[in-house]
Design a protein around this nucleic acid. Structure first.
Lengths: 90, 90
DNA sequence: TAGATATTTAGATAAGTGTCTAACTATCTA
DNA sequence: TAGATAGTTAGACACTTATCTAAATATCTA
């Protein structure tokens, strides 16, 4: 595992918007692509990066591939941020 | 404001390490640079990006410029992540 | 004011990234 | 099995980014 991949994946606005879409419910690659003014291969590229960072999962059902959030890494990221928001007593 | 700058700033490992150093205490640009195997102008470049993202503050005192954490944006980022870690009831 | 120290700015370069079109793979259905 | 639909992979290209060296700016002190 490497949070580094997650941080890099989250640096792109399109990818963060994809994650926001998936917060509501799982979606197929095509449904995700329809939300963007961008060709499908570009969206597919973003999905690949999100998957590589373990921020999403995919599952094929027939002709469709469904994408859904994987919240594990989000929790790890939250922990990382948390250490910055708490004052250290010294 | 734009969290986008913060997300981009955080995508680089060197910059995250700088933030980690500043978690302990404020440091001068030179002290920060001494922690890295990298020329000072490169570190200065990273500091500029972190500052632009409002993740750090700077303050000159004589010949030195002290850098310190600005936790405001960290809190905003935490809020963003939080919405992904809570299940929606529907 | 001259020299030393601290730091940034400028400009160059190599590597990385996001997007596109074209082509390919996988699945379904008539 | 042929055609349609869903999605990815491959390769090219423009733009961005991280790093470097050299030069500039700012401050202190003798």
């Amino acid at each position: 595992m490497s949070l580094n991949e997650a941080f890099k994946a989250l640096s792109d606005p399109t990818r963060r918007q994809i994650l926001t879409l998936l917060k509501e419910d799982e979606l197929t690659a095509g449904e995700i692509a329809s939300h963007f003014d961008m060709q499908k291969p570009s969206v597919s590229h973003h999905l690949k990066i999100l998957k590589h960072a373990s921020l999403i999962d995919d599952e094929r059902r027939g002709q469709h591939i469904y994408y859904s959030l994987n919240t594990t890494v989000f929790h790890e990221l939250m922990s990382w941020y948390f250490t910055f928001t708490t004052k250290e007593e010294k």
